[in-house]
Every structure is written in C-alpha cells, then in structure tokens.
Design a protein around this nucleic acid. Structure first.
Length: 492
RNA sequence: GGCGCUAUCGUCUAGGGGUUAGGACGUGAGAUUCUCAAUCUUAAAACCCGGGUUCGAUUCCCGGUAGCGCUACCA
C-alpha cells in the first residue's frame, strides 16, 4: 500500500479546482466533499482554486452559481485563488521549462492536425518537424512574430516508464512513448489546463490531488510537468466517476438540471443528507453504516475506503432523485431538532405564498416530520394549517369507508360539533370524548374519525387527528365542520 | 484505432481461496395503527464469460467481452 502521508509532521493540503463553465455539478460537489473530508480528517488545509484559464467558456454567472452551490453545502475552505490572476507565474514557469530544453515551439496553426491522429500510429504523438526544429530556427520564427504553441518534449525512444502510486487505484505506470507532446501554452499565450494546474499545485504546495478518474491518464503528463518544474510531484488519488443510469457520464447538456446541486437544494434536500448520499457513491465506511453525520463522515473517511468502479446515480425522467438520496434525506429530516426543521421548511411555505407564523410552524413541524421526504413536501403536507379557506374537496370523501353513508357522516359530524364546542381542547380530552361518541354511535374509530379528518383537513390523508385539531384550534375546526355539514347536505 | 481503468442483487455496497455471499435503498407480503406516514417482521433479487493455479475459485493469474476514461492550443 502506498504511503500517502508525506511525513507525519506535515498536514496535507488538498484542493478543489472547479472550472466555472456552468453550475456546480454533483460530480464536482462530490470531489469537493471528499477533498474536504480528507483534509479535515487529517487536520489539513482546503484550498479552493477556480481553474478559469478557458476564457472562451468561463462566465461570471457560472462563478457565482458555483459559490452558491458551495455555500449551500456549508463546507468551508481555508484559502482561495483564481488561476486567471496567476497567469504571469504560469508563463514564467513555461518559459523555465522551455529554457531547460524540455519544451519546444510548435508553429503549426491551431487545429491543423485535427482528424489525422487516427492514421499511422505514432504520428499523433507530436507534430512532425516541430520537435526537431533547431533552436535558432525556432527563435527566428518566434522573433518574426509567428504564433506558436509551446509543447512538452516528452521523452522518446528512451524506454522510459512513468510511474506513480495512486491513493485509490494503486500503482500506475505508462510508457512515456505513449504520451503525446501535450501543449503547455496556447498560441495566444494562455496556459493550458495541464500547465496552469501543475504550476499552481506546485506553487500552492498542494500535497494531495484528489480528483475525478477522468484525470487518471492525464496524471502521466502532470508527472512530466512537475519534473520539468523541478519539484516533487504531490500524491494523487483518483475517484471513480458518477454516471447516469445508462452508464454515460453525467452531463449538463444531456441530463439537465438533475446534475446541478441547486436542483437538490431547491427540492428540499438537507445539505448534510446530500453530502451523506454523495459520499456513499464510491466510498464506504465498510461497516454497513449508511446514515452518517458530517462529523461521523469526517472521522470515518479514508482513501482506502474509496472503491474503483463508477457509481450510478439512479434517477429517471419521472423521479429526478435517486431513491436512496430521498430516503437518506428523510432520515436526516427525522434526525433534525424540531426548531431546525421548522427553520428549514419555512422558506418553502413562503415560496408557496402561505402565511405562517414561527409559533404555528413550530407546532406543525412535529406533525409532519415523519411524513415528508423532501423539505418541499412540507407544503403539501401542511398547507391546510395555514389556509383561511380549505380548497374544495369531494364531499363523498366525508362518508366513512366500508359501508358508511351520508347520513352516518352527518351524524358523526354533528356529534363532533357538540363535542368540540364543549370539550377541553387538548389531545387527551378530545381523544376520550370522540372515542366515547364513537362507541355511542356504534362506530369504530376509523369510520368515526374519517369524516372529521376530511372536514378539518380537506383530505383523507393527514397527520393524526387530535394533534391536528389542537393546532388548528377550536374555532377553525368548528367552522370547517360546519362547512362540511353543508356540503354533505347539498349532496342530495 | 491506441493507451489506461473497471466488472458482486434493479441501484449503492460489504466480503473474500472452503460463507446459508452480508447490509442498505427500492419492490412484494404481513404486523401495528384514527387515515397517511413512521416502525417492526418477512419474501424475491447478485459474484460478466472462458481458461488456468489449487484438493477447492465469486475471490489469485491470463484471455475475452462489456462499460467508462484519456487520446484538444477544453478542463
């Protein structure tokens, strides 16, 4: 097993380096989370670096939405950088690599080689002619203002094997002869991702690069760059990818909003549940535990627990969210103190245009806590508590199930009216009085309570009756029952 | 095409040379209950294929297949 700690005395420095080309996507979020967990578990540092060297595709809105996503997750970072502000360093280091003879100028016009790489093997590795250009010739053309890209002079014919020990995938090796002469600088002078990333990782003294497996083979290039920079390469650990049910990698274009973390937020996921879910994709604490708090995740997280195969996020057209994510969210909702849950659901009521008061919402929360899976479900589960007027419902629902009729419903409701008008309005008193009434009418609890529940809530499925009525209050209950009686009478 | 990575229930995973292959979600059935939930019990459901190695492979090795990634002057 490779030793991943540089030295016992040095705390790791991990980094998350998103490129702002869209919203924060779930795969990126997981990479961030695992970096964070790794750093925090080892008392290390979290560096956030915006990899924004692609001026064509980077946008400010994208930067904002990434921060929005990160803020929602609630995980902090210690240092923050923008690659676009470090271009001078990148160019200077590219120059240094060139000065060492480890890179060469490629004057081939951009995109000229497209489509040719599949032809004869070997030709794709570099642009023939350019690598061998004499220094004098190269300097002369550069001085004449001819644009060029700077390419790494990958060792050829030396039978050299590039190696590193991946923290997840174990020992990795590849022949240098199989690595193409990748670009360091574009012909407009901008650094490529590979250059900027390595220069910054070196300069920021990043000790552990934990990133998606799509970078596994890029790592050999990065090894070469670190070598060219004259620094020791950091430790690498690659994470299995998150993929769609069809096995394709999650893409913003193909899968739409379901890959954006803000979609989870807006649907009413708790950040800790979302984090918990993402961690379970490609990582396991190996003790059959699934519900884990952030502290527990931090304590349990190790790279050894990361597995190597891609993980499917099980969403469909109809259900945007993986059922396990939804279940975990429900679990976290139930684990939340009532005050916190109240606070979490309040915005959803506001958004639905329902006027709530903190006190009433606090009273309602325990009644719906076990009945919602997403925070937004709270609105449909509890709207009737806050409506001045119940939405119209089918009066037939007032009729008790299993052979009841309108007359029976009417009897129940009229009894209920008497009782509610006179009984102390607390759970136990109502319970006793209504059950007594049921016995008197020769009814079981079910048939007795359904008409009342529908009258008071406007639907058959609702939280337990007595608690619900207590929160609603005597006036509202009596008024709604009165309306129900009228509806019932208008039935025939 | 080349190179690399991967392969356990539908999904997420545990496990590991000899196991009734474990857990979770989801699904079915049942219990409980004033409805709905929650909870409990329970059922169905997996080691990609072929060769080795071995007394014995799902596990180790090789090959195949499949999936994914990289193969840009994207990241």
């Amino acid at each position: 097993m490779p030793d991943l700690t540089p030295s016992a005395a040095t705390a790791p420095r991990a980094r998350f380096a998103p490129s702002p080309t869209g919203f924060l996507h779930v795969g990126s979020a997981r990479t961030f989370i695992l970096n964070w967990l790794y750093a925090r578990h080892n008392n290390g540092t979290v560096v956030l670096r915006l990899d924004d060297t692609d001026v064509e595709r980077n946008t400010e809105v994208s930067v904002q939405s990434i921060f929005e996503g990160l803020r929602w997750l609630g995980l902090d970072w210690d240092e923050e950088y923008k690659q676009s502000e470090r271009l001078a360093l990148h160019r200077q280091q590219a120059e240094a690599i060139f000065a060492k003879g480890l890179a060469y100028r490629d004057f081939t016009p951009a995109h000229a080689a497209e489509g040719e790489q599949s032809s004869s093997q070997g030709a794709w590795l570099f642009n023939p002619g350019m690598r061998e250009l004499s220094r004098e010739e190269s300097d002369r053309r550069a001085a004449a203002g001819e644009p060029f890209a700077l390419r790494y002079r990958v060792p050829r014919g030396e039978d050299r094997t590039l190696r590193f020990a991946d923290g997840v995938y174990g020992p990795q090796s590849k022949l240098a002869d199989e690595v193409e002469d990748f670009a360091l600088l574009r012909s407009d002078g901008m650094p490529t991702y590979h250059l900027a990333s390595c220069v910054d990782d070196a300069d920021l003294r990043i000790s552990h690069i934990i990133r998606g497996q799509d970078h596994l083979t890029n790592t050999f290039k990065h090894l070469l760059i670190f070598e060219g920079l004259g620094v020791q390469a950091p430790h690498f650990a690659h994470l299995p990818l998150l993929v769609a049910p069809d096995g394709a990698k999650l893409s913003k274009r193909k899968h739409g909003p379901v890959v954006s973390v803000t979609t989870y937020r807006d649907a009413g996921f708790l950040p800790q549940a979302f984090i918990n879910f993402l961690c379970l994709l490609g990582w396991s604490p190996k003790n059959d535990r699934e519900f884990l708090t952030l502290d527990e995740l931090t304590a349990a997280f190790t790279l050894e627990g990361v597995n190597r195969s891609n993980a499917v996020i099980n969403f469909t057209e109809e259900d945007h969210f993986d059922p396990k994510a939804v279940w975990l969210n429900a679990e976290h909702i139930r684990a939340l103190p009532v005050e916190d849950l109240t606070h979490a659901i309040a915005p959803f009521f506001a958004e639905a245009g329902l006027a709530t008061t903190p006190e009433k919402l606090l009273a309602v929360t325990p009644l719906i806590r076990e009945r919602i899976k997403l925070l937004r479900d709270a609105v449909s589960a509890a709207d009737f508590f806050f409506l001045a007027e119940l939405a119209p419902y089918d009066p037939a629902e007032l009729i008790p199930p299993k052979g009841g009729d309108a007359a029976m419903a009417l009897r129940v409701l009229e009894h209920a009216q008497q009782i509610l008008a006179t009984t102390a309005f607390d759970h136990d008193s109502l319970d006793q009085a209504l059950r007594a009434a049921a016995a008197q009418l020769g009814l079981k609890a079910g048939p007795m309570f359904q008409p009342i529940r529908v009258a008071v809530c406007g639907r058959k499925n609702a939280p337990p009756l007595f608690e619900t009525m207590v929160v609603l209050g005597r006036e509202v209950c009596l008024e709604r029952i009165k309306q129900a009686v009228e509806r019932l009478k208008s039935l025939d």
